[in-house]
């Protein structure tokens, strides 16, 4: 190393030393430097976007040219709450999200219970792979697969016909949507329930038995309450994912969900972004309420 290089490096080394000393003296500065990148990301790309969304919900568009009018108006919210169509679509979406969540909870619990408490290590690995396997393939491919199954001349009707049973006409109905939604979000319910069940110490169950509780009582009074945060955590996924999805309804259903109305107002029809923004606040509100309740039930301890 020659002299010039050392001289050139010194100011930089000094600066670095001074900086680290400053950071050591002031812990708050350290915290700021550490938190700023993720926080900045959160604020700019998430909260700022939400704020813009909320503000633009109060704008409107010119009905013919479709250009934005930046005047403050409640008209969008008035339409949403006074027009029975939009109320109906919102209720339908919430209702479907609830039905899917309930179905997934009922289907996932025994599965997760078997995985966590009965299956051996090898079986458990195999089951894990089976639960996660569908997530490796495209969501769209799986929806199209269901279309092929439920179609008029599809796999299901073919099987029913061979068995001599009456065929079904579920294609493009709410029943089809319910089946497909329940299928697609099932892994998101199984995994949190599994995590919650796995955490229950065997000693609790032994204690319950020692105190004279039968299997059913142990299940009802020990296992279910301890697994509840896991169920609620899973339901956050199934509920919010159903609430926001618009692809499944447009591919396997024949009616609009909240997401379809938003989508068509953004990239279709009149490009009515303000109305889309106003309607988008509905699922936000619903999810906000849901999360408050979920927190009360301890869902976030299980995540």
């Amino acid at each position: 190393m020659n002299a010039t290089a050392v001289r050139a490096e010194r100011p930089l080394g000094n600066a670095r030393r001074r900086l680290s000393a400053a950071l050591w003296r002031r812990p708050w500065l350290r915290a700021v430097a550490l938190l700023l990148p993720p926080l900045g990301w959160m604020i700019v790309f998430y909260l700022a976007a939400l704020a813009v969304l909320f503000v633009s919900a109060f704008w409107s568009i010119d009905s013919f040219t479709g250009k934005l009018t930046h005047t403050w108006t409640w008209a969008n919210f008035h339409t949403i709450f006074s027009d029975p169509t939009y109320r109906q679509i919102a209720w339908r979406t919430i209702w479907m999200a609830s039905a899917v969540t309930l179905t997934d909870a009922i289907v996932a619990f025994p599965f997760a219970y078997f995985m966590a408490r009965i299956a051996g290590p090898r079986q458990r690995t195999l089951l894990f792979v089976l639960v996660l396997l569908p997530l490796w393939s495209s969501y769209l491919a799986r929806i199209y697969a269901w279309r092929l199954i439920l179609n008029h001349d599809g796999a299901l009707n073919w099987t029913l016909g061979k068995l001599g049973l009456p065929t079904q006409g579920w294609a493009f109905t709410n029943t089809a949507m319910w089946i497909v939604f329940s299928y697609i979000w099932l892994p998101f319910m199984i995994l949190p329930i599994y995590a919650a069940l796995e955490r229950i110490p065997d000693s609790y169950i032994e204690a319950s038995r020692d105190l004279g509780a039968r299997n059913w009582t142990t299940f009802r009074r020990v296992i279910v309450p301890l697994a509840l945060p896991g169920i609620v955590a899973g339901s956050i996924f199934t509920f919010s994912l159903t609430l926001g999805d618009y692809i499944t309804p447009s591919l396997v259903g024949n009616v609009d969900f909240i997401g379809n109305v938003i989508y068509r107002n953004v990239l279709g029809l009149t490009n009515n972004l303000p109305f889309a923004a106003a309607y988008a606040t509905i699922p936000l509100l619903v999810m906000g309420l849901y999360l408050v309740v979920a927190k009360r039930l301890g869902a976030f301890d299980a995540l």
Partner: peptide, 26 residues
């Protein structure tokens, strides 16, 4: 558009068509 081509402007514009379509499908 609102303009019906007969000098009157009592026709339904495209925003109305869009809203009605959402209504029809629901």
């Amino acid at each position: 558009t609102k303009d019906c081509g007969n000098g009157k402007s009592n026709c339904m514009d495209y925003t109305k068509w869009q809203q009605a379509w959402t209504d029809i499908k629901s």
